[in-house]
Amino acid sequence: MEKQFSKSEARNSKKGILLVNLGSPKSTDVKDVKEYLDEFLMDERVIDYRWIFRALLVRGIILKTRPAKSAEAYKTVWTDKGSPLIVITEKIQKKLQKLVDVPVEIGMRYAEPSIENGIQRLADKGVSEIVLFPLYPQYAMSTTETVIEKAEEVRKKKFPGVKINYIQPFYNRDIYIDCLAESIKEKLPENFDALQFSYHGVPERHIYKTDPTKTCNLNDCCSRDDNPSHQFCYRHQCYKTTESVIERLNLPKEKTIVSFQSRLGKDKWIEPYTDETLETIPKKGIKNLAIVCPAFVSDCLETLEEISVEGKEEFLHAGGENFHYIPCLNDEDRWIDVIRTLCEEKLDEFYLV
């Protein structure tokens, strides 16, 4: 039986924060990239086929060729200190640690440092109540949900005496929207024809699978304020983030674009697709483009290579003239303040047991 915490115990327990990001290969070596992709793509919440079919697809097809290609891509973004995503997350940890009086550790959903390692480091410091922050603004089966499921699996198996409070998706929180809008505003070029919001894509079936209300139809429901599926709908949350940011920036809607990147395989993913959009908009008169990726809070392969390099090539080849990538929030001080606020809210909840 798991330990139950009384209010007095909660006040006397030591608390800590665990920041969880996606993860990265240990190096750009093909072997390390293959190991990372195997763990990532074999996650049933990323490729949601039955195990045997998932294994046939991932280990029988994808891992035969993709690791070598991905290794080359990683080499273009790798830093002297390692993976940009890991390096940035470590910077966030250090900055946050200076602002809070509880221990702060990091964990990755895939590869190292793992979620288990992060919980262990906190437990070694006497922490029994953890605020776990999945660093994803919007909710998706392949991001927030898989982090929580993995953390709960680890907690129940290895740390049954530890209690975890999870920070929920913050895609519509004013403090986050203000932070994102301010960051974008500072980096927008003076002259641009459109601002494109490119979100990581997911298969359409994921939207339906994560909707316990069964009210989502992927059509007009995203624009309705009262649809009960919104708290689980990744697509709605992406559009809501965009809507809120352009309102803060006072941009006309016709000067903004929403698209979804990184699709895998032949299944139907949520549309419109980023690559196809970049290839068609120059023909519509959009020659000067600014682009931002608000599904990510830390720059990584999907932003630095897929968008800033490949996306730029696609746009310019199609007739575009100027392509301006706007970096993620990374370790900006204003973003660290948002993280601190959201974490402190959850830390306070421990006292309300």
Rank of each mutant, 00 (worst) to 15 (best):
V104S: 06
F40N: 00
M1N: 12
K240Q: 14
K34Q: 13
T144K: 00
I257K: 12
A318F: 02
Q120F: 08
S70T: 15
T341V: 13
L249E: 02
D80L: 13
I62D: 03
K98D: 12
S262P: 02
A290K: 01
C179L: 07
E129W: 01
L329S: 01
T76R: 15
F232G: 04
K75T: 10
N288G: 01
E152Q: 12
Y325M: 15
S244E: 15
F170T: 01
Q237T: 13
P252H: 10
P25H: 06
M108T: 04
Q196A: 15
S259D: 10
T146Q: 07
M108G: 06
I175G: 00
H206I: 10
L249S: 06
F296N: 09
V309E: 12
I336T: 13
N217P: 00
V147Y: 03
S244N: 15
N250F: 01
V87R: 11
L195T: 02
L316F: 00
H324N: 15
P327R: 09
N12C: 09
E105S: 04
V87K: 11
H324C: 11
E112F: 06
Y273N: 05
P137N: 08
V292G: 08
H236W: 11
A194S: 07
K7I: 15
Y199E: 03
S298C: 14
K98L: 08
I106T: 09
V100Y: 02
K75V: 05
Q138M: 11
A295P: 02
H206F: 13
A123W: 09
P228S: 01
I175N: 13
F192M: 12
D299G: 01
E345F: 04
Y110M: 11
V202S: 08
Q93H: 09
D337M: 14
D48G: 10
S308E: 14
T215D: 04
I148D: 01
L278I: 09
P84L: 02
N330M: 06
N322L: 09
V245K: 04
T79E: 11
D333F: 02
C233S: 06
L85H: 06
M42C: 09
R109P: 01
V162L: 13
R59P: 07
Q196D: 09
F296Y: 13
H200E: 07
E39I: 10
V20H: 04
Y199M: 03
N191R: 12
K266H: 14
Y239A: 12
G320H: 05
L278F: 13
R263I: 08
I88D: 11
A318D: 08
K268W: 05
P212V: 10
F133M: 14
C179W: 00
L37Y: 04
P103I: 02
K64L: 14
K98N: 10
E35V: 10
K156F: 09
H230M: 05
F133K: 01
K255R: 15
F170H: 08
